[in-house]
Write a protein that binds this DNA or RNA. Structure first.
Length: 270
DNA sequence: ATGGCCGCTGATAGCGGA
C-alpha cells in the first residue's frame, strides 16, 4: 500500500469543486493541500469532501483572495496557521497526521506571488515575498525540522533552469529572478536539509512545469510553463518517497481549469 | 514576448494573480 500526497493551487475551490472531485476519483490521494481556495472557512465545501472520503479538514480561508486548506482521509491533529511579515493573509496551515511511520507534520504554503517589479524598494509585494522567504529560512533552522516534516504548496518560484520554458528570458521576471531562486535554494539546501521530492524522481535536465498562464492563447502548444508548485520533505520522510507526478492534463480540464495542475508524490509501505 | 486572461467583490471597475 502506498500513500499519496498532493499539492494544487485550485484558484477557487467553489468554482473548481467538480474538477477536484474528478481528480480524487482518478488519483485516490490520501492528503490534498489546496491553495487559493478564495473563500472563507464557512464557504468551504466541507460536506462534498467529507462525502468523497475526506472528513478530516484543516481550512484557513479568507474572503475573496488567497486561502489554504488540507483535506485528508486520515485524522489531522495540532492544526495551526502562521502569519508572515505581520500581514494578515491566509497563506499557511499545518497539521499533524500519522501515515504509519509516526507523527508527520505537513505544512501547506501559499508564498506571495510578488507582483511585477523584482525590486523590494519600489514594489511592496516583492518585499513581502522576500520577507516571507526570510522568515521561512529562520523558522526551518529550528530543531523540530530535523525530521518528520513535509512542506508543500504554491511557492511561486521556479528554482532551476529547467523549471521554466526559457531561463534567459525569465531571469528578470518575478518567479525566476536570481534573488528568489537563490533564496529558495538556500532554504532547500540549508537548515537541516530538505529533499525536493519531484526532482528526486525527474532529472534536472528535463523541463518540468506545474503552471501555464491563462494569457497564453494556446497554452499546450506554446508550453511556456513554470514549475511553481513544490513538495519537499525531511530526509527520513524523503527516503520512502517512491514516485512523483505532475498531472498536466488538468490544465485542460473542461472550459474552466486552474492555471496550476496537481503535483503528486507517493510514499511506500504503510 | 510577456500578457492576449481569470476569479472575486455590499461586483457592474478594480484588485490580485505570476
Amino acid at each position: 500500500m502506498t500513500v499519496a500526497v498532493v499539492t494544487w493551487n485550485i484558484n477557487s475551490v467553489r468554482l473548481r469543486l467538480p474538477m477536484v472531485l474528478d481528480f480524487i476519483q482518478q488519483y485516490q490521494p490520501d492528503v490534498l493541500m489546496l491553495q487559493e481556495i478564495k473563500c472563507t472557512n464557512d464557504q468551504f465545501p466541507t460536506n462534498a469532501f467529507t462525502e468523497a472520503g475526506y472528513p478530516h479538514q484543516a481550512v484557513h480561508g479568507q474572503k475573496g483572495y488567497h486561502g489554504v486548506a488540507i483535506v485528508s482521509k486520515f485524522p489531522l491533529t495540532d492544526i495551526s496557521s502562521r502569519v508572515f511579515c505581520e500581514i494578515p493573509e491566509s497563506r499557511h496551515v499545518s497539521a499533524v497526521l500519522d501515515l504509519g511511520r509516526g507523527p508527520l507534520t505537513v505544512h501547506n504554503f501559499y508564498i506571495p506571488a510578488g507582483g511585477d517589479e523584482p525590486d523590494p524598494e519600489i514594489n511592496p509585494k516583492f518585499k513581502h515575498k522576500l520577507g516571507f522567504l526570510s522568515e521561512l529560512t529562520s523558522w526551518f533552522s529550528e530543531p523540530e525540522f530535523q525530521r518528520g516534516h513535509l512542506i508543500a504548496g504554491d511557492f511561486n518560484i521556479a528554482p532551476h533552469e529547467n523549471d521554466v520554458w526559457s531561463h534567459k528570458q525569465l531571469l528578470k521576471v518575478v518567479s525566476h529572478t536570481p534573488i528568489e531562486t537563490e533564496a529558495l535554494n538556500a532554504i532547500l539546501n540549508g537548515g537541516h536539509g530538505w529533499t525536493d521530492l519531484v526532482r528526486k524522481h525527474v532529472p534536472f535536465d528535463q523541463k518540468l512545469y506545474s503552471w501555464w498562464s491563462y494569457r497564453s492563447a494556446d497554452w499546450e502548444n506554446a508550453n511556456k510553463g513554470r514549475r511553481l508548485d513544490h513538495i519537499w520533505a525531511t530526509a527520513d520522510i524523503a527516503e520512502h518517497c517512491i514516485a512523483a507526478e505532475i498531472a498536466k492534463p488538468y490544465r485542460g480540464w473542461a472550459d474552466k481549469p486552474s492555471d496550476h495542475v496537481p503535483v503528486i508524490v507517493r510514499f511506500a509501505g504503510v
